[in-house]
Design a protein around this nucleic acid. Structure first.
Length: 284
DNA sequence: AGGCAGGTTCTTA
DNA sequence: TAAGAACCTGCC
């Protein structure tokens, strides 16, 4: 089934795929377009137990390889299409904050996806002191080992769901090590056990306040302030969370010695963080 | 070959 | 309470 749609607001699949917030979102060599010489870019997006191919048609037109029902009930929300990122971007004053203005122009099209808290928790625990290709490789190994097949195309290969907490908790330390997790294997294992046992209730945390959410996440073994903020921003979609990694710290140091305008951009500081991260990382 | 990559925990003063 | 070392692994 194919579903075609026009998206007028900021929406750039290449930038989202490369923004560092998702690890199972990749450009693929035209699996959804068998036509010879077609110039349309295609993307494969896996989210928890769903998967879709998206083709860029140009002119703000996109083809989703799913039914309208699937799009309306899942992908529309996943891409946060009810929120205008253009309007958020327009909060930035070029004269007052030229660096962020440039970063936002450069990163125009990035959105904060509504991803699953469990998948994000494990993904960002794995992310510590790893580069993005290594993070992706570990996650794919985990999915192949403990996920289910959710798409199986003879040409494009198999896509696996992200492992459920109990499937992940059931893996041995040897199996986890086989996913190149390094010293993070025990963090992943413990997080899975905590979620399975109910010691941590990720869905109940949807309802608690920001401070309480941070406090609870920090109790998890292997979760510090940076990973917790990624979970709050990407897993719980609280758009004011502002994860500080090495890149962001460098930007704050070099470009904002007098301080970043957190008050001005609330409650969307996390969106600004994404522009800054994407910009600084691609500038080198 | 040795350093480093989207940090966190553990140890020490 | 705060700085420094240690930590897996893979890739330059």
């Amino acid at each position: 089934m194919i579903m075609e749609i026009t998206i007028k607001d900021d929406f750039d699949l290449a930038k989202i795929a490369d923004s560092g917030q998702c690890f199972r979102f990749n450009e693929v060599p035209e699996p959804c377009d068998k036509a010879e010489g077609a110039a349309h870019k295609c993307y494969s997006v896996a989210a928890l137990n769903r998967h879709v191919y998206i083709k860029e048609l140009g002119q703000n037109r996109y083809e989703f390889d799913c039914s309208k029902e699937e799009f309306d009930s899942f992908w529309k929300r996943y891409f946060d299409l009810d929120l205008s990122y253009k309007k958020i971007r327009e909060r930035i004053d070029e004269e007052e904050d030229p660096y962020l203005y440039r970063a936002a122009e450069y990163g125009k099209g990035i959105r904060i996806l509504r991803q699953d808290p469990w998948e994000m928790l494990i993904s960002f625990i794995i992310s510590q002191r790893k580069n993005i290709p290594a993070i992706k490789a570990s996650i794919e190994k985990l999915c192949a080992l403990a996920g289910n097949v959710i798409a199986d195309d003879p040409e494009t290969g198999r896509i696996y769901s992200f492992p459920t907490p109990d499937k992940l908790a059931a893996l041995s330390m040897e199996q986890l090590s086989g996913c190149s997790l390094g010293y993070r294997d025990k963090y992943v294992h413990q997080a899975a056990l905590d979620v399975v046992s109910g010691a941590v209730d990720l869905s109940a945390l949807e309802k608690v306040g920001d401070d309480k959410l941070m406090e609870e996440l920090l109790k998890l073994f292997g979760v510090g302030v940076k990973v917790a903020n990624c979970e709050i921003l990407f897993g719980y979609h609280r758009l004011d969370a502002f994860p500080k990694d090495v890149w962001i710290n460098r930007v704050l140091e070099e470009q904002y010695p007098q301080g970043f305008l957190f008050d001005k951009y609330a409650p969307y500081n996390g969106v600004m963080q994404q522009y800054l991260f994407f910009y600084s990382r691609s500038m080198g």
